[in-house]
Design a protein around this nucleic acid. Sequence first.
DNA 1: GTAATTTCTAAACCTAACTTTAGGTCAAGG
DNA 2: CCTTGACCTAAAGTTAGGTTTAGAAATTAC
Lengths: 151, 151
Amino acid sequence: MAVSEGLAIGALARRTGLAVSAIRYYEAQGLIAPWRNAGGQRRYQRADIRRLSFIMIAQQFGLTLPEIRDVLSGLPGSRTPTPQDWRKISVRLRARLDQRIATLTRLRDNLDGCIGCGCLSLPKCALYNPDDRAKSHGSGPRYLMGDSPDT
Amino acid sequence: MAVSEGLAIGALARRTGLAVSAIRYYEAQGLIAPWRNAGGQRRYQRADIRRLSFIMIAQQFGLTLPEIRDVLSGLPGSRTPTPQDWRKISVRLRARLDQRIATLTRLRDNLDGCIGCGCLSLPKCALYNPDDRAKSHGSGPRYLMGDSPDT
DNA sequence: GTAATTTCTAAACCTAACTTTAGGTCAAGG
DNA sequence: CCTTGACCTAAAGTTAGGTTTAGAAATTAC
Protein backbone atom coordinates (compact mmCIF):
# COMPACT_ATOMS: atom_id res chain seq x y z
CA MET A 1 0.00 0.00 0.00
CA ALA A 2 2.92 2.28 -0.55
CA VAL A 3 2.02 5.65 -1.95
CA SER A 4 3.23 4.85 -5.44
CA GLU A 5 2.13 1.44 -6.55
CA GLY A 6 0.33 3.21 -9.33
CA LEU A 7 -3.24 3.11 -10.54
CA ALA A 8 -4.84 -0.01 -11.97
CA ILE A 9 -6.50 0.38 -15.33
CA GLY A 10 -9.97 0.25 -13.82
CA ALA A 11 -9.19 3.08 -11.44
CA LEU A 12 -7.82 5.15 -14.29
CA ALA A 13 -10.96 4.40 -16.28
CA ARG A 14 -13.15 5.61 -13.43
CA ARG A 15 -11.03 8.72 -12.99
CA THR A 16 -11.22 9.69 -16.66
CA GLY A 17 -14.57 8.34 -17.71
CA LEU A 18 -12.95 6.29 -20.45
CA ALA A 19 -13.63 2.61 -21.02
CA VAL A 20 -10.92 0.20 -19.97
CA SER A 21 -10.82 -1.10 -23.51
CA ALA A 22 -10.24 2.39 -24.85
CA ILE A 23 -7.26 2.89 -22.56
CA ARG A 24 -5.72 -0.36 -23.72
CA TYR A 25 -6.39 0.70 -27.28
CA TYR A 26 -4.61 4.01 -26.77
CA GLU A 27 -1.64 2.10 -25.46
CA ALA A 28 -1.63 -0.05 -28.60
CA GLN A 29 -1.61 3.20 -30.60
CA GLY A 30 1.35 4.52 -28.68
CA LEU A 31 -0.47 7.28 -26.82
CA ILE A 32 0.26 6.09 -23.30
CA ALA A 33 2.82 3.76 -21.77
CA PRO A 34 2.10 2.14 -18.41
CA TRP A 35 4.45 -0.23 -16.65
CA ARG A 36 3.54 -3.70 -15.40
CA ASN A 37 3.39 -4.95 -11.85
CA ALA A 38 4.67 -8.34 -10.69
CA GLY A 39 1.51 -10.05 -11.86
CA GLY A 40 1.67 -8.50 -15.32
CA GLN A 41 -1.08 -5.96 -14.79
CA ARG A 42 -0.83 -2.41 -16.08
CA ARG A 43 -0.03 0.33 -13.60
CA TYR A 44 -0.35 4.04 -14.31
CA GLN A 45 1.00 7.25 -12.86
CA ARG A 46 -1.35 9.89 -11.60
CA ALA A 47 -0.03 12.11 -14.36
CA ASP A 48 -1.60 9.73 -16.84
CA ILE A 49 -5.04 10.93 -15.80
CA ARG A 50 -4.08 14.29 -17.20
CA ARG A 51 -2.62 12.70 -20.28
CA LEU A 52 -5.84 10.84 -21.02
CA SER A 53 -7.90 13.95 -20.39
CA PHE A 54 -5.76 15.79 -22.86
CA ILE A 55 -6.37 13.04 -25.39
CA MET A 56 -10.11 13.34 -24.90
CA ILE A 57 -10.03 17.09 -25.35
CA ALA A 58 -7.86 16.89 -28.43
CA GLN A 59 -10.30 14.41 -29.90
CA GLN A 60 -13.12 16.84 -29.41
CA PHE A 61 -11.08 19.27 -31.41
CA GLY A 62 -11.08 16.75 -34.20
CA LEU A 63 -7.50 15.51 -34.02
CA THR A 64 -6.87 11.91 -35.00
CA LEU A 65 -5.02 9.62 -32.63
CA PRO A 66 -1.81 9.79 -34.66
CA GLU A 67 -2.00 13.57 -34.56
CA ILE A 68 -2.52 13.51 -30.84
CA ARG A 69 0.41 11.18 -30.46
CA ASP A 70 2.52 13.69 -32.32
CA VAL A 71 1.38 16.54 -30.14
CA LEU A 72 2.02 14.50 -27.00
CA SER A 73 5.51 13.73 -28.19
CA GLY A 74 6.25 17.29 -27.14
CA LEU A 75 6.04 16.17 -23.53
CA PRO A 76 9.17 15.07 -21.69
CA GLY A 77 9.45 11.31 -21.56
CA SER A 78 11.85 11.20 -18.67
CA ARG A 79 9.92 13.08 -16.03
CA THR A 80 6.42 13.92 -14.99
CA PRO A 81 5.21 16.82 -17.15
CA THR A 82 5.02 20.17 -15.42
CA PRO A 83 2.28 22.73 -15.93
CA GLN A 84 4.67 24.51 -18.25
CA ASP A 85 5.02 21.37 -20.36
CA TRP A 86 1.28 21.13 -20.67
CA ARG A 87 1.00 24.78 -21.47
CA LYS A 88 3.43 24.33 -24.31
CA ILE A 89 1.50 21.57 -26.02
CA SER A 90 -1.79 23.28 -25.34
CA VAL A 91 -0.51 26.13 -27.41
CA ARG A 92 0.15 23.69 -30.23
CA LEU A 93 -3.38 22.40 -29.86
CA ARG A 94 -4.73 25.91 -29.92
CA ALA A 95 -2.94 26.60 -33.17
CA ARG A 96 -4.58 23.64 -34.85
CA LEU A 97 -7.92 24.64 -33.45
CA ASP A 98 -7.59 28.17 -34.77
CA GLN A 99 -6.94 26.72 -38.18
CA ARG A 100 -10.04 24.56 -38.08
CA ILE A 101 -12.19 27.44 -36.99
CA ALA A 102 -10.79 29.57 -39.76
CA THR A 103 -11.51 26.90 -42.35
CA LEU A 104 -15.06 26.43 -41.20
CA THR A 105 -15.63 30.15 -41.06
CA ARG A 106 -14.34 30.61 -44.57
CA LEU A 107 -16.59 27.81 -45.72
CA ARG A 108 -19.56 29.42 -44.03
CA ASP A 109 -18.85 32.79 -45.53
CA ASN A 110 -18.65 31.26 -48.97
CA LEU A 111 -21.95 29.59 -48.37
CA ASP A 112 -23.34 32.94 -47.31
CA GLY A 113 -22.14 34.47 -50.54
CA CYS A 114 -23.87 31.74 -52.46
CA ILE A 115 -27.07 32.14 -50.55
CA GLY A 116 -26.92 35.85 -51.08
CA CYS A 117 -26.36 35.74 -54.80
CA GLY A 118 -28.53 32.75 -55.35
CA CYS A 119 -26.10 31.22 -57.80
CA LEU A 120 -25.24 27.99 -56.06
CA SER A 121 -24.16 26.61 -59.36
CA LEU A 122 -21.14 28.26 -60.85
CA PRO A 123 -17.47 27.46 -60.67
CA LYS A 124 -16.89 31.02 -59.57
CA CYS A 125 -19.04 30.19 -56.57
CA ALA A 126 -15.74 29.00 -55.08
CA LEU A 127 -17.45 26.99 -52.42
CA TYR A 128 -14.83 24.44 -53.02
CA ASN A 129 -11.27 23.26 -52.77
CA PRO A 130 -10.99 24.57 -49.24
CA ASP A 131 -7.75 22.56 -48.99
CA ASP A 132 -9.13 19.69 -46.99
CA ARG A 133 -10.20 17.70 -49.98
CA ALA A 134 -7.03 15.89 -50.96
CA LYS A 135 -5.91 15.93 -54.54
CA SER A 136 -8.01 13.32 -56.28
CA HIS A 137 -6.58 10.85 -58.71
CA GLY A 138 -8.00 12.51 -61.77
CA SER A 139 -6.49 15.61 -63.23
CA GLY A 140 -8.01 18.84 -64.42
CA PRO A 141 -10.43 21.20 -62.80
CA ARG A 142 -13.37 19.99 -60.81
CA TYR A 143 -16.52 22.04 -60.99
CA LEU A 144 -18.43 22.54 -57.84
CA MET A 145 -22.07 22.98 -57.22
CA GLY A 146 -22.84 22.89 -60.90
CA ASP A 147 -21.98 22.09 -64.43
CA SER A 148 -19.40 23.67 -66.58
CA PRO A 149 -19.89 27.39 -67.17
CA ASP A 150 -22.77 27.00 -69.60
CA THR A 151 -25.21 25.20 -67.34
CA MET B 1 -28.70 11.93 -79.05
CA ALA B 2 -31.78 13.72 -77.90
CA VAL B 3 -31.14 16.46 -75.42
CA SER B 4 -32.39 14.48 -72.45
CA GLU B 5 -31.08 10.96 -72.48
CA GLY B 6 -29.41 11.84 -69.23
CA LEU B 7 -25.89 11.48 -67.99
CA ALA B 8 -24.19 8.12 -67.53
CA ILE B 9 -22.64 7.51 -64.15
CA GLY B 10 -19.13 7.94 -65.50
CA ALA B 11 -19.96 11.34 -66.92
CA LEU B 12 -21.47 12.39 -63.62
CA ALA B 13 -18.36 11.18 -61.84
CA ARG B 14 -16.15 13.26 -64.10
CA ARG B 15 -18.38 16.30 -63.63
CA THR B 16 -18.32 16.11 -59.84
CA GLY B 17 -14.94 14.59 -59.14
CA LEU B 18 -16.56 11.75 -57.21
CA ALA B 19 -15.74 8.10 -57.76
CA VAL B 20 -18.31 6.03 -59.61
CA SER B 21 -18.46 3.69 -56.65
CA ALA B 22 -19.23 6.59 -54.32
CA ILE B 23 -22.15 7.68 -56.45
CA ARG B 24 -23.60 4.19 -56.40
CA TYR B 25 -23.07 4.13 -52.66
CA TYR B 26 -24.98 7.38 -52.21
CA GLU B 27 -27.83 5.86 -54.15
CA ALA B 28 -27.82 2.86 -51.82
CA GLN B 29 -28.02 5.33 -48.93
CA GLY B 30 -30.98 7.09 -50.48
CA LEU B 31 -29.23 10.33 -51.33
CA ILE B 32 -29.81 10.27 -55.06
CA ALA B 33 -32.24 8.45 -57.32
CA PRO B 34 -31.34 7.97 -60.98
CA TRP B 35 -33.58 6.19 -63.44
CA ARG B 36 -32.52 3.29 -65.65
CA ASN B 37 -32.26 3.17 -69.40
CA ALA B 38 -33.41 0.25 -71.54
CA GLY B 39 -30.21 -1.64 -70.82
CA GLY B 40 -30.50 -1.21 -67.08
CA GLN B 41 -27.81 1.45 -66.75
CA ARG B 42 -28.21 4.44 -64.46
CA ARG B 43 -29.06 7.79 -66.03
CA TYR B 44 -28.90 11.11 -64.21
CA GLN B 45 -30.35 14.56 -64.65
CA ARG B 46 -28.07 17.53 -64.95
CA ALA B 47 -29.54 18.77 -61.70
CA ASP B 48 -27.93 15.80 -60.00
CA ILE B 49 -24.53 17.36 -60.49
CA ARG B 50 -25.67 20.09 -58.18
CA ARG B 51 -27.13 17.58 -55.80
CA LEU B 52 -23.86 15.70 -55.53
CA SER B 53 -21.93 18.91 -55.11
CA PHE B 54 -24.20 19.83 -52.28
CA ILE B 55 -23.54 16.47 -50.68
CA MET B 56 -19.80 17.03 -50.90
CA ILE B 57 -20.06 20.45 -49.34
CA ALA B 58 -22.31 19.25 -46.55
CA GLN B 59 -19.80 16.52 -45.81
CA GLN B 60 -17.08 19.09 -45.44
CA PHE B 61 -19.28 20.70 -42.86
CA GLY B 62 -19.25 17.44 -40.99
CA LEU B 63 -22.75 16.17 -41.69
CA THR B 64 -23.24 12.44 -41.89
CA LEU B 65 -24.93 10.91 -44.91
CA PRO B 66 -28.20 10.33 -43.05
CA GLU B 67 -28.18 13.96 -41.95
CA ILE B 68 -27.55 15.08 -45.50
CA ARG B 69 -30.36 12.89 -46.69
CA ASP B 70 -32.64 14.63 -44.23
CA VAL B 71 -31.56 18.06 -45.39
CA LEU B 72 -32.03 17.07 -49.01
CA SER B 73 -35.52 15.87 -48.26
CA GLY B 74 -36.36 19.57 -48.18
CA LEU B 75 -36.00 19.63 -51.96
CA PRO B 76 -39.05 19.05 -54.14
CA GLY B 77 -39.17 15.51 -55.44
CA SER B 78 -41.48 16.23 -58.31
CA ARG B 79 -39.57 18.93 -60.16
CA THR B 80 -36.07 20.14 -60.76
CA PRO B 81 -35.05 22.25 -57.76
CA THR B 82 -34.97 25.97 -58.35
CA PRO B 83 -32.37 28.36 -56.96
CA GLN B 84 -34.89 29.21 -54.26
CA ASP B 85 -35.15 25.57 -53.28
CA TRP B 86 -31.39 25.38 -52.92
CA ARG B 87 -31.32 28.61 -51.01
CA LYS B 88 -33.79 27.20 -48.53
CA ILE B 89 -31.77 24.13 -47.69
CA SER B 90 -28.55 26.10 -47.68
CA VAL B 91 -29.97 28.13 -44.87
CA ARG B 92 -30.54 24.94 -42.92
CA LEU B 93 -26.95 23.97 -43.58
CA ARG B 94 -25.74 27.35 -42.46
CA ALA B 95 -27.53 26.96 -39.15
CA ARG B 96 -25.74 23.73 -38.42
CA LEU B 97 -22.45 25.24 -39.43
CA ASP B 98 -22.93 28.19 -37.12
CA GLN B 99 -23.47 25.76 -34.30
CA ARG B 100 -20.29 23.88 -35.01
CA ILE B 101 -18.27 27.04 -35.17
CA ALA B 102 -19.76 28.20 -31.91
CA THR B 103 -18.91 24.92 -30.22
CA LEU B 104 -15.33 24.94 -31.43
CA THR B 105 -14.92 28.55 -30.45
CA ARG B 106 -16.21 27.91 -26.97
CA LEU B 107 -13.86 24.98 -26.67
CA ARG B 108 -10.97 27.13 -27.79
CA ASP B 109 -11.80 29.87 -25.34
CA ASN B 110 -11.88 27.37 -22.53
CA LEU B 111 -8.52 26.10 -23.60
CA ASP B 112 -7.25 29.66 -23.58
CA GLY B 113 -8.47 30.08 -20.03
CA CYS B 114 -6.57 26.97 -19.01
CA ILE B 115 -3.42 28.10 -20.74
CA GLY B 116 -3.75 31.45 -19.11
CA CYS B 117 -4.21 30.18 -15.60
CA GLY B 118 -1.82 27.32 -16.02
CA CYS B 119 -4.09 24.96 -14.16
CA LEU B 120 -4.86 22.40 -16.82
CA SER B 121 -5.75 20.03 -14.09
CA LEU B 122 -8.78 20.94 -12.08
CA PRO B 123 -12.41 20.06 -12.38
CA LYS B 124 -13.17 23.75 -12.29
CA CYS B 125 -11.13 24.02 -15.46
CA ALA B 126 -14.43 23.23 -17.15
CA LEU B 127 -12.79 22.23 -20.37
CA TYR B 128 -15.30 19.50 -20.48
CA ASN B 129 -18.80 18.31 -21.00
CA PRO B 130 -19.24 20.67 -23.90
CA ASP B 131 -22.37 18.69 -24.76
CA ASP B 132 -20.91 16.67 -27.58
CA ARG B 133 -19.74 13.88 -25.36
CA ALA B 134 -22.85 11.77 -24.96
CA LYS B 135 -23.83 10.64 -21.52
CA SER B 136 -21.51 7.79 -20.70
CA HIS B 137 -22.71 4.59 -19.11
CA GLY B 138 -21.21 5.30 -15.73
CA SER B 139 -22.74 7.73 -13.34
CA GLY B 140 -21.30 10.49 -11.21
CA PRO B 141 -18.96 13.30 -12.07
CA ARG B 142 -16.07 12.87 -14.44
CA TYR B 143 -12.95 14.83 -13.76
CA LEU B 144 -11.20 16.36 -16.64
CA MET B 145 -7.64 17.20 -17.23
CA GLY B 146 -6.70 16.01 -13.79
CA ASP B 147 -7.37 14.10 -10.65
CA SER B 148 -9.91 14.81 -8.06
CA PRO B 149 -9.45 18.10 -6.26
CA ASP B 150 -6.45 17.01 -4.22
CA THR B 151 -4.11 16.14 -7.05
C1' DG C 1 -9.02 -20.13 2.07
C1' DT C 2 -12.22 -19.38 -1.04
C1' DA C 3 -15.37 -16.52 -3.71
C1' DA C 4 -15.96 -12.47 -6.33
C1' DT C 5 -13.68 -8.90 -9.00
C1' DT C 6 -10.32 -7.31 -12.03
C1' DT C 7 -7.23 -7.85 -15.26
C1' DC C 8 -4.81 -10.28 -18.99
C1' DT C 9 -4.37 -11.50 -24.31
C1' DA C 10 -5.95 -12.38 -28.80
C1' DA C 11 -9.23 -12.23 -31.95
C1' DA C 12 -13.62 -11.11 -33.62
C1' DC C 13 -17.03 -7.68 -34.20
C1' DC C 14 -18.96 -2.81 -34.96
C1' DT C 15 -20.20 1.73 -37.71
C1' DA C 16 -19.26 5.03 -41.35
C1' DA C 17 -18.08 5.78 -45.76
C1' DC C 18 -16.30 3.98 -49.24
C1' DT C 19 -13.21 0.95 -52.60
C1' DT C 20 -12.04 -3.37 -54.69
C1' DT C 21 -12.92 -7.62 -56.82
C1' DA C 22 -15.19 -11.06 -59.55
C1' DG C 23 -17.90 -12.35 -63.04
C1' DG C 24 -20.89 -10.79 -66.37
C1' DT C 25 -23.67 -7.23 -69.62
C1' DC C 26 -24.20 -3.00 -72.48
C1' DA C 27 -22.87 0.45 -75.76
C1' DA C 28 -20.06 2.79 -79.14
C1' DG C 29 -16.38 2.89 -82.77
C1' DG C 30 -14.28 0.95 -86.86
C1' DC D 1 -19.67 -7.87 -86.49
C1' DC D 2 -16.52 -7.49 -83.14
C1' DT D 3 -13.70 -5.46 -79.84
C1' DT D 4 -13.05 -2.32 -76.22
C1' DG D 5 -14.44 0.39 -72.65
C1' DA D 6 -18.19 1.63 -69.59
C1' DC D 7 -21.54 -0.40 -66.63
C1' DC D 8 -24.00 -3.95 -63.78
C1' DT D 9 -24.55 -6.61 -59.04
C1' DA D 10 -23.12 -8.71 -54.91
C1' DA D 11 -19.90 -9.45 -51.68
C1' DA D 12 -15.72 -8.74 -49.46
C1' DG D 13 -12.07 -5.56 -47.98
C1' DT D 14 -10.40 -0.98 -45.79
C1' DT D 15 -9.53 2.66 -42.08
C1' DA D 16 -10.56 4.81 -37.66
C1' DG D 17 -11.65 4.18 -33.25
C1' DG D 18 -13.18 1.35 -30.44
C1' DT D 19 -16.14 -2.70 -28.04
C1' DT D 20 -17.13 -7.55 -27.20
C1' DT D 21 -16.01 -12.16 -26.27
C1' DA D 22 -13.59 -16.13 -24.43
C1' DG D 23 -10.78 -18.36 -21.45
C1' DA D 24 -7.22 -17.85 -18.10
C1' DA D 25 -4.56 -15.63 -14.30
C1' DA D 26 -4.12 -12.08 -10.65
C1' DT D 27 -6.14 -9.45 -6.85
C1' DT D 28 -9.27 -8.20 -3.37
C1' DA D 29 -12.89 -9.05 -0.03
C1' DC D 30 -14.70 -11.72 3.50
